[in-house]
Design a binder for these strands. Structure first.
Length: 300
DNA sequence: GGCGTGTAGGGAAAAGCCCGGG
DNA sequence: ACCCGGGCTTTTCCCTACACGC
């Protein structure tokens, strides 16, 4: 027998698929996959198995028997293969790399999951809204948004949340913990993402620019609001000069320039203005001019 | 700026499927 | 015929990051 193995002889072949085996017994077990024969029944859950060894492994999921323990942390597992996989969390070994970007992973399945981020493959679609996802678990998560189910209530205020993580984040509002600090100004925030958002104010990075006029904004929502100025119909037109406005408020403010009404005055010089914005412009100009003059004065 | 919400991606564990050696 | 061990694959759960929008 040993010689046969070393000669790589597999004399027992399956008539269904042509696969060959060293042992007749292996062929018999293999043939169960074609016949669907599963003689080992779990009385606990009714599940059937084609091999006894698989049945025994399955039984451990009911009994909770975990014979393989990690020498490093003492954690126990039902199988040696699970233990070996777990041990990588201690050694830091990452044998599976992405051929696209070189990123390494502890498990092959993680590398496969990661590869989908390059290919953009999204095989799971929502029957409700046709949105697609790369993972089944993400689709299931998404489906909750259609059912409006919120299984996580806040013990403090009773508000309910879709996800546990959302509840935890919400509870920070009750404890008043502001643990995230802006390194530039020292301001505190309850969320890390808020610091990132806030920091764009310091850096002046305006990633969202308007295709119509080139004006840039730090947030997409501000750009969207701005875009309405270009796309929105200008329904308020001035009978005096024909100028058109998108909002009633702008229109009303503009009308004051024709009526001569000047409700906004500047206490420094007594000058009056029809619009608050014009007063602000004046103030700014005056302020700048005063500063400029002061800068020109000789230092004593 | 605050905060609720939705999605994407990584880490880890568990379980199913299948095969080889003895 | 059976036992045992192990590799490969799939599934599941948890958590974090981050973007969006009000």
């Amino acid at each position: 027998m040993h010689e046969r193995i070393h000669r790589n002889e597999k004399p027992f072949s399956c008539l269904k698929c042509g696969r060959s085996f060293y042992h007749k017994s292996h062929l018999i077990v293999h043939q169960r996959f074609h016949t669907g024969e599963k003689p080992f029944l779990c009385s606990g859950c009714g599940k059937c198995f084609s091999q006894k060894s698989d049945f025994v492994k399955h039984q451990r999921s009911h009994t909770g028997v975990k014979p393989f323990s990690c020498l490093e942390c003492g954690k126990c597992f039902t199988r040696t293969s699970h233990l070996i996989e777990h041990e990588r969390t201690h050694t830091g070994e990452k044998p599976f790399s992405c051929p696209e970007c070189g990123k390494c992973f502890k498990q092959k399945s993680d590398a496969v999951k990661h590869r989908r981020t390059h290919t953009g493959l999204k095989p799971y679609s929502c029957s409700e809204c046709a949105k697609c996802f790369a993972r089944k678990s993400h689709l299931l998560e998404h489906r909750i948004t259609h059912t409006a189910e919120k299984p996580f209530p806040c013990s403090e205020c009773g508000k309910c949340f879709i996800r546990k993580s959302h509840l935890i984040e919400h509870q920070i509002n009750h404890t008043g913990e502001n643990t995230f600090l802006c390194p530039l100004c020292g301001k505190c925030f309850s969320r890390k993402s808020e610091v990132v958002k806030h920091q764009r104010m310091h850096t002046g990075v305006k990633r969202f620019s308007c295709a119509e006029c080139g004006k840039s904004f730090t947030r997409r929502s501000t750009l969207d609001k701005h875009m309405k100025n270009h796309t929105q119909e200008k329904i308020f037109s001035c009978s005096e000069c024909g100028k058109c406005f998108t909002r009633k408020w702008y229109f009303v403010e503009h009308q004051k320039s024709h009526t001569g009404e000047k409700p906004f005055s500047y206490s420094e010089c007594g000058k009056c203005f029809s619009l608050k914005a014009t007063l602000a412009q004046h103030k700014k100009r005056m302020h700048v001019n005063i500063q400029t003059v002061e800068n020109l004065l000789p230092q004593i």
